[in-house]
Design a protein around this nucleic acid. Structure first.
Lengths: 419, 419
DNA sequence: TGGATTTGTTTCGCTATCCAACATATTACG
DNA sequence: CGTAATATGTTGGATAGCGAAACAAATCCA
């Protein structure tokens, strides 16, 4: 008759973890806003000026943040110095896809310092993806060791991922099943590794650094070559569910006697709304969302209009459900879903207004994603940052100093074949 | 460029509210478990023995809890006294329905002390419901003032309710629109009043005291005369959304070209799955879920089986969506939905296993609700308790002592006509 | 009866925080 | 140009919530 386990049972090693919260709060605030004045920090946290002062002092000592001269904005009163995140505190991001594995380095503050896209000629297996990532990371290793403090690696996988143990339960488009990618990459690199669903991480990325900044309830939907992924932010936190599988809005039911989906059901959103017919109508063999939008805008045929309308109608049903269920402030559409919405701006809004319940529908706004190709890197890095953000003072004795803090954001491109 | 307001801006009157959390934690634990030994409390909270000791001492002084002799369970070591919630700390619950307004008094610990059902001859307006509730409460007033400390009133409304301001946005079956019921009842009684959706409160009730005890992610669905309401618990907390409208699973899309729903859409769960055809087939004019179940079990006609199967199929679609979206551990079915499930036990499980995604579907279990007719009282009372539970030491100078703590749970029945 | 075990109790010390007073840097206004 | 007004950083107590350790009490077990 013990309903639930102890929330705070062991880990008595550190002194009083329940009280170190405000240090973490300040760190997150600085990280997610890329720099805030001390005055703003006191307002945001509700803490005392003096408390913020001492805490910031600690973070400066820990080399987590640094202070710069006040911004030029003219205001009455003593100017407040700006507290900025050190980009030398960094996390690695890995994103395996159908045709590439992308590895990135993201600094505290969410700036992508480095991005390396490794094109593959066929769909990578889990082992291959891990090998590629490990090799690229090994190549960066000396730079990482001298100029950064790497807090870990985050892996964004298009599929069902158990966030607790980092096992990919099923990634249909990659053909992966029960692959312990986090453990594999952890053993290969020595860094602590975590894995999660790519759309969930995208939702967090857009929430913290993108179109949904400052919202507390938002729904993120991404349409790509491998279907539709979703991530849900409820009350400021990602909806995870029992094992981190939550958010699979791509398999929302939208049509009776619809086509069978690879998931075993019929009439899923992702079988009715997909990018391949759009690419065909646009006369494109492949490409990204931007190219698709251009091509569709150039083509004003009826067939295009009909297909766009058809897909928007099904998307509208899924969004109606989501709005009734979550009562969000914002819906963020990424990939080709963003294109659909942009091609016919008012359609989804009016569908929602007429079909969803009055209350929830009246408050929701639909946005297009803002972070583009950096999103996955930022989201995955956030996964690796979480542990650090929860306790910025704990567990890193690495005194490595560096000058990488003001490095420019350089993006490399590279390609190769599978090993 | 200010993404969000200060989380802790004003209310500087009380000394350091950020540190009073463990007192609240203990209070909630005792409340929701109806009594725990001090040893269990230390394990659950992870706090030090001595800390728990002092905190419990405070709660005893505040007359929030009392200690009783250790339970008879034989164990090695010094027996630990049981900390019990004082039922004299109480909250009022109000639940307007189509044919009645029910008023209840619930003590800390979740025991219903009193329940008065006021039958109405027609659907009550908001004003009538408030009048009835206020009159019944006025009648109890002297007892309340002498024997209880009433923390407030919670109103459970079948409809869209803005939890922040207590305004009923739209309760279709009651015919209410934009009714500020919380303010109305607050003015009529002088108690702090809050209102929320009935199914949301049901979800919380079942989570804390019923079938879902100890779960962190569960979905509650209630089927009644006025349709299907839903409440979602994610990560231990009720999903509220921007304004508390979240959880309307009754309007999940389950059928293309289905019947039009009063919400403006078509193919909603609540139009396809409803209790009236079941009552007809059972040959009943009305009644509760228990009577319906008995009648349907007695009737083994094909028509009944077909209708049950049809409704279960649509319910399965809605549950499939919900499972894919939330990855819950448990689904709790109440009202006639519980009957449907009980009549054909394995059906929903196998529907989920074949149609929902592997990961989430493998973990979910379907339960029938456990709290019966007390649920709404408990849930609504919880709404009134929340403020108190967040700060048990703050804001009640009422030193009223009482002997109602050991009163028996008495349920009254009463009926009348509209004023 | 005595040891093992678990838990309540007491005392003490730590530390995160707030508060109040003071110092400093800026704008506003004469 | 100087003074007032304003907002903020800084410093030195004071406080309170909590943990650690030692001790005391109440149970089971051999």
């Amino acid at each position: 008759m013990m309903p639930s386990p102890a929330p705070n049972p062991v880990t008595v090693s550190e002194p009083d973890p329940s009280r170190r919260n405000n240090l973490a709060l300040l760190t997150s605030l600085v990280h997610h806003n890329g720099g805030l004045s001390r005055a703003q920090l006191t307002k945001r946290t509700g803490l005392n000026r003096s408390t913020v002062g001492t805490l910031i002092g600690q973070l400066v000592n820990l080399e987590v943040v640094y202070e710069t001269a006040p911004s030029g904005e003219a205001q009455v009163g003593r100017p407040s110095p700006i507290v900025r995140p050190r980009p030398s505190i960094a996390a690695l991001a890995v994103n395996p896809e159908i045709d590439a594995v992308t590895i990135g380095l993201v600094g505290l503050g969410g700036k992508v310092q480095k991005k390396i896209r490794f094109d593959t000629e066929r769909i990578p297996t889990a082992k291959e993806a891990v090998n590629i990532a490990a090799a690229v990371i090994a190549g960066m290793r000396s730079e990482l060791d001298t100029s950064y403090r790497v807090m870990g690696v985050g892996i964004a996988v298009p599929g069902l991922v158990n966030r607790d143990d980092g096992v990919v339960r099923h990634a249909p488009h990659l053909g992966w099943r029960d692959e312990p990618v986090a453990r594999m990459l952890g053993e290969a690199t020595g860094y602590p590794c975590h894995a999660a669903n790519d759309a969930s991480l995208g939702a967090e990325g857009e929430l913290l650094f993108g179109a949904g900044a400052g919202q507390k309830n938002l729904i993120y939907l991404n349409g790509g070559a491998s279907g539709i992924g979703g991530g849900i932010i409820a009350d400021g936190a990602l909806l995870r569910g029992t094992s981190g599988y939550a958010g699979e809005l791509g398999h929302t039911f939208v049509r009776s006697s619809g086509k069978p989906c690879h998931c075993g059901a019929t009439g899923c959103l992702e079988t009715e709304v997909s990018q391949s017919p759009l690419f065909e109508l646009a006369g494109l063999g492949g490409g990204d969302a931007g190219q698709l939008e251009q091509a569709l805008r150039a083509n004003s045929s009826e067939a295009v209009g009909a297909e766009v309308a058809r897909q928007l109608e099904y998307l509208g049903i899924a969004l109606r459900n989501a709005v009734n269920t979550f009562n969000p402030e914002a819906i963020v559409l990424d990939g080709f879903l963003g294109v659909l919405h942009a091609l016919s701006p008012g359609t989804l809004d009016s569908l929602l207004r007429s079909q969803a319940l009055d209350g929830p529908a009246g408050q929701v706004k639909i946005y297009r994603a803002a972070l583009g190709s950096d999103l996955m890197m930022i989201g995955a890095a956030e996964l690796a940052f979480t542990q650090f953000l929860a306790d910025p003072a704990g567990a890193f004795p690495i005194p490595t100093l560096s000058q990488a803090d003001h490095a420019e954001s350089g993006a490399l491109a590279q390609s190769g074949t599978l090993p």
